[in-house]
Simulated scan of single mutants.
Amino acid sequence: MSTEIDAPPNLSALYLKAAATGPLRRGRELPETEYVRRDIAVDHDHLAEYDRVCGFGLRDVLPATYPHVLSFGLSVRLMTDPGFPFPLVGLVHVANSITVHRPLLVTDVLTQRVRVADLRPHPKGRQLDVITETSVEGEVVWRETSTYLRRGKPDESAPRAERAAEVEPGSATAVWRVPADQGRRYAEVSGDKNPIHLRALTAKAFGFPRAIAHGMWTKARALAALEGRLPDAYTVDVDFVKPLLLPSTVEFTAHRDAGTFAVHSRSGKPHLVGRLH
């Protein structure tokens, strides 16, 4: 069932709804709702701020990760609807795949569709996909699958997912110093104000010693480091392996021939691993 949305959802209201209804959610199935928003024009000032926060240059072509931000409100609305089975707070973003069929331009007028699918077992609970399609004049030009984990009773029968890539630490392409306020800066431009990303105090309430960077900021920052070397059409898969605590100094490594890249801690533990194909 498709439902048309005329304007971006009010994220502040949705977060309050999530807090109030989260403890009551005990469902076993995903809703069949699809939210659709049409006639989306790119706000040039917002895009410029997103580019600055994520490290992209100012260009007429949208970063591959930017439509994720545009559709984020639809995703949150869907995951706070009465039929969604899990609390929004506590879902863990474990993987993300984006396919760019052709470059999106700042002048394009977009239509976005968001739905959830494929509730399935995971060794640490259950997982599901949030699927987003972005179209221009009826043509799907961008597609994203974000995989979320709901931690729960271990299911040893669940297949263990293969990572997007395996990239050994060492021979870093770049070293990034990620400041303590990176989560707050990305939250302002993305709308993703999950408390685990904002401050150490709020992150500790959810079991983290400090605030952690958004996975989608880390993916965007990696693609910004590859800017100018990406084809017009490609798929980029990443796994979010280990939280990136703020502040941190991390190493970015890219292997052009293999199409693989990763973000590691200075001790060699992976935060993100990815593959371009």
Rank of each mutant, 00 (worst) to 15 (best):
R77P: 00
D60H: 08
L14M: 06
P154H: 09
R184Q: 14
T147Y: 05
A224Y: 01
P159M: 10
E227I: 02
V76E: 00
L104P: 10
S157P: 04
T260Q: 03
A254P: 01
E188W: 00
L70R: 08
H122V: 14
R26P: 00
A254C: 13
Q127F: 09
R177D: 15
C54S: 13
L78T: 12
M216D: 00
L11T: 06
L110H: 12
G83K: 10
G191S: 01
V236N: 06
G22E: 04
L245N: 13
L246R: 08
L78G: 04
Q182V: 04
A95V: 10
M79I: 03
T33F: 03
F240W: 10
H68V: 05
R184Y: 01
A205Y: 04
I40V: 15
L78M: 11
D192W: 03
P231D: 09
P121A: 04
A262T: 00
V89C: 00
L244W: 10
G125E: 13
P195A: 09
A174C: 03
T235M: 02
P63S: 12
R59C: 01
N194Q: 03
P9N: 09
D60K: 13
V140R: 04
T80F: 06
D108K: 05
R77M: 13
P270Q: 10
Q182Y: 03
L62R: 07
R120A: 11
Y50L: 07
R177P: 00
D181C: 06
D237N: 15
L74N: 08
L149M: 13
M1G: 15
R151N: 12
H271C: 08
H46Y: 09
T80K: 01
V175D: 13
C54V: 11
A117M: 06
G228E: 01
T260C: 05
V175A: 14
G207P: 05
R256Q: 14
A180F: 00
A225K: 07
L14N: 04
L272Y: 06
T132V: 13
G27D: 02
G55Y: 00
W217R: 08
T173W: 02
L14E: 05
S267I: 03
F56N: 10
K242F: 02
V130I: 15
P87A: 08
P31W: 08
T147P: 11
F84R: 05
R221L: 01
A164E: 07
A158D: 14
P195T: 08
T235I: 03
E227A: 09
D155I: 10
T21L: 05
T147C: 13
L78V: 10
L62C: 06
P9F: 04
A213N: 07
T33S: 09
F84W: 12
R185N: 12
F252K: 01
G274M: 02
H46L: 07
L128Y: 07
L201I: 05
Y66N: 05
R52F: 00
F240G: 12
W176L: 09
F86V: 03
V175N: 09
P85W: 07
V236Q: 06
L24I: 05
M79C: 06
